[in-house]
Nucleic acid binder design. Sequence first.
DNA 1: TTTTCTACCTACTAACAGGTAGGTATATTT
DNA 2: AAATATACCTACCTGTTAGTAGGTAGAAAA
Lengths: 191, 191
Amino acid sequence: MSTRESIIHLADQLIRDQGYNAFSFYDIAKTLGIKNASIHYYFPGKTQLGIAVIKEQSRRFNVLKQAVADKRPAEQLRAFAHTYAATRQEERICIVGSLASDLHTLDTETGQSLALFAEEVIEWLETVLEQGKKLGDFTFAVPTRTKALLIITNLLGGLQLTRLTQPQDFYTIAETIIQELSPVQIKENNT
Amino acid sequence: MSTRESIIHLADQLIRDQGYNAFSFYDIAKTLGIKNASIHYYFPGKTQLGIAVIKEQSRRFNVLKQAVADKRPAEQLRAFAHTYAATRQEERICIVGSLASDLHTLDTETGQSLALFAEEVIEWLETVLEQGKKLGDFTFAVPTRTKALLIITNLLGGLQLTRLTQPQDFYTIAETIIQELSPVQIKENNT
DNA sequence: TTTTCTACCTACTAACAGGTAGGTATATTT
DNA sequence: AAATATACCTACCTGTTAGTAGGTAGAAAA
């Protein structure tokens, strides 16, 4: 991994661990064994680094998208949820949740970049849900976009809320999302 | 409102607008027309102010709880969701979402205070859902705690995600949560 | 061989952060 | 009237922040 890539990777980890306003150039520099000023060689300012992090997340999201494009909707959704589960295991949150929380402290470019990425994810999820519905793999009684919003907020919010409860709560949420979409639900009575 | 109360109120607004690490004592001081040092008179440090904000949120939550205690579960839930809708209109997010995002930068006391508050909310929601189920007002096929987690993450995450889309998306989410609990669902086909 | 480029570096700055020490005007209590 | 408590204040300190100016060793290109 190049220095540039390492900077982006570390910035991403720090943003999703501590938040955009809590990480500093020095945090990255000390880990990489370079000096603060060297980060400015690659990124003029924090804004540009932030945008690079969002773009990299978008790139990785598109890699996943392509990788699962031929699979069944349920499996696509499962792969998507799995990335959140991995994030949960790192005790981190998703980039959208992290930066949306700090939105009013970011400049407009960063905000626009983030909004673009969020819309990308929502739209992909809509197509997966539509596919699933057509194939009879998914059942849901609300408009597709609404269902997509509900699922994403469950995952995004789940990462944050379950930092305060237990990791297991997150996995329960993720499993439930998928279970609830199945047309035939084997109901167990948990009393 | 006393100076002390004003400080807490402003800190709360700032935390839920910009995030814990983005607000400064000076932000509060300038608005109140006092000096930085005067805030330290009421709160020894940022930590204590943060905890005071959480405790105030908890107090207000309990006021709401009492105010709706005698009402039907659906109306209790609606009142709860309404507080999030009001927050959405201010372009703010909820305290749990804001501070959970910054959790790894807070000291343990603050984190514990927050976790306590989050559990309070989850447990209240569980009892409301249980009540609703017993009365036949609510139907849901997952364990009560799971349903509570799903609803809270929808609201918490909805406030954050819809900062990037449109306010209407949040109201859709909030409405859908309540609609989906109703035992008889009048299904419309939105194509 | 000389020039240019890459990938850093040292050294610095201005702004801002939370926090502290100690002072003071006013109101309240004794 | 004297003592005390309240609710601030001025002045200062130390640490950290993003960011800048200009230098340099080594590799690549001309």
